[in-house]
């Protein structure tokens, strides 16, 4: 859908499936998924959100940890959700069916939203949550701001430089992933995607070395507390890329969810591109 057309539709309130007026809006909203938390934290009125997932309290993966910490944390347990006496619980469409059924059975309305794996998805998600919370104007402002940032930061011309990303367990952002989109926006080709690796595939260290990318993206602080999943960050072999490959540390929280925080990652990528 062309950008201008979507502008019009959003302005007319046609996208996002019927909005709620503030008077009828839910006043005790709970979200139970890191990415939904982030969207809801941005959109909700003060006090409207009464529960977020415990992950949102973790500053390493949550952009809005400060804000989230003022709100009680829930784990994906029915009891801890109902305890908060919510009048709306927002679930990811792929969340555990049993939990959703039990919450619905307890008489609490639920909203199911699809997983956002691109900037466009994120905009739709924010619009949708804005509509559900009676906060269309706020949601729209965020979306418009995202368009602006994207326009400003996007690289002109076809991507030329080569980048690879490595996450825990040598996981990588392959074809169709959010990071893949960000890399392209910043003017990078994605090594993993070119090797045919899917969105949440794995990229062997050997392939990273053999590909000799111009940029290697990883979370440099990931192994501050050691784990096998993240120890590759300190692997000696990566030193061989020194002088050839630029290392870029992008904190996990900039790219774990699709949302406005992705522009922080995009900014770092754009700087690395120059």
């Amino acid at each position: 859908m062309a950008l201008w057309l979507r502008c019009l539709l959003v302005a007319a309130g046609l996208l996002g499936g019927g909005s709620t007026s503030w008077a009828q809006a839910p006043q005790r909203v709970v979200t139970v998924n890191l990415c939904l938390d982030q969207a809801a934290l941005r959109v909700a009125a003060p006090g409207q959100l009464v529960g977020v997932s415990y992950l949102s309290h973790d500053p390493r993966i949550s952009m809005l940890a400060d804000k989230a910490r003022a709100i009680p944390a829930v784990r994906a347990k029915v009891e801890s959700i109902l305890e908060l006496r919510p009048d709306l619980v927002i679930f990811d469409r792929d969340a555990h069916a049993n939990i959703k059924r039990l919450v619905r059975k307890a008489g609490v309305p639920i909203l199911e939203v699809p997983w956002a794996s691109s900037l466009e998805d994120a905009e739709a998600l924010i619009t949708r949550i804005g509509a559900a919370l009676g906060r269309d104007a706020e949601a729209q402002a965020i979306v418009v701001d995202m368009w602006g940032q994207r326009r400003r930061l996007a690289h002109d011309g076809p991507p030329t430089a080569l980048a690879a990303t490595l996450q825990a367990n040598r996981g990588t952002a392959g074809k169709g992933s959010l990071m893949n989109e960000l890399l392209h926006l910043a003017g990078f080709r994605n090594l993993a995607a070119e090797l045919g690796i899917p969105a949440y595939g794995r990229l062997p260290l050997e392939s990273v070395l053999a590909g000799q990318p111009d940029l290697l993206v990883l979370d440099g602080n990931a192994n501050a507390h050691p784990a096998r999943a993240t120890e590759f960050v300190d692997h000696n072999a990566l030193l061989a890329l020194a002088g050839r490959t630029r290392l870029l540390s992008i904190p996990l929280k900039y790219s774990i969810c699709a949302g406005p925080e992705n522009f922080a990652a995009l900014k770092l990528l754009a700087e690395a591109r120059r």
Binding site: P204, E206, L209, A210, Q212, N236, A237, L239, A240, L241
Partner: peptide
């Protein structure tokens, strides 16, 4: 054996690192 197939064909320190530091 490895995804980089024949790293020695790279003939530089990266190929060397694949053999020496990984394999």
């Amino acid at each position: 054996v490895g995804p980089a197939l024949w790293p020695w064909r790279l003939g530089n320190e990266v190929g060397w690192a694949i053999v020496w530091e990984l394999r």
